[in-house]
């Protein structure tokens, strides 16, 4: 018997279970983190005499492809949660598996992009454009890696909870899904800012 209330069912007056409020607060702090970095980008760019156009130095088709991959992963993430709501465990496994594959594909493409730059000897110290490019995409990639670890856990060993506490497990998928959509959203801002503008 769980001692702490509202771990699974929602509290009436707030309409939330604990973890859902928790993840929203966490995401609020993430907004401030990336907000701080985007503000830094703006300030640096405004102060720079010259600033390279993203489309001249980065591979826009690859970036576009990656954006599509990440958006797809968000869609499959929602489908995974819906599958659990419909008590369709095999479908959950398939859709969450697809989410993980998409995110891995994203990382491979990103790694390829990084590798192409490194092979030309372009590192963060090159100029402030590359400095902010590597920092923002690197931090985003760390978020992806963290997310994949958690997703893989829920796909593999963590999914045992479905047998004992299905409702709680569904909540967990919803919470990790919210995080995943946020990581996706960050990229949707990163892509135009770094690749197109």
């Amino acid at each position: 018997m769980e001692m702490i209330p509202y771990t699974v069912e929602a509290r009436k007056d707030t309409g939330l279970y604990n973890a859902k409020l928790g993840i929203w607060l966490f995401l609020a702090s993430e907004v401030m983190l990336f907000g701080g970095l985007f503000s830094s980008y703006i300030l640096l760019r405004l102060g720079a005499p010259v600033w390279p156009h993203g489309k001249d130095v980065l591979n826009v088709p690859l970036g576009t492809f990656n954006t599509m991959v990440l958006i797809s992963s968000s869609v499959t993430m929602v489908l995974a949660w819906v599958a659990l709501k419909q008590k369709n465990f095999p479908k959950f496994k398939a859709t969450l598996g697809l989410t993980i594959l998409c995110s891995l594909l994203f990382m491979v493409v990103k790694g390829f992009e990084y590798g192409a730059k490194f092979s030309h000897g372009i590192f963060p110290r090159e100029n402030t454009y590359y400095a902010i490019y590597y920092t923002l995409t690197g931090l985003h990639a760390l978020h992806i890696i963290g997310g994949v670890v958690v997703l893989a856990y829920f796909w593999g060993p963590g999914s045992k909870m479905w047998l004992t506490q299905p409702e709680r497990f569904t909540n967990r998928i919803e919470v990790v899904g919210l995080y995943w959509h946020f990581v996706d959203l960050v990229w949707i801002f990163l892509f135009p800012v770094l690749y197109l503008l």
Binding site: A28, S29, G36
Partner: peptide
């Protein structure tokens, strides 16, 4: 919750 992340951003930079 909301004020520390920008310092974290600054620390990263």
């Amino acid at each position: 919750l909301l004020a520390f992340p920008p310092l974290f951003a600054a620390s990263i930079l």
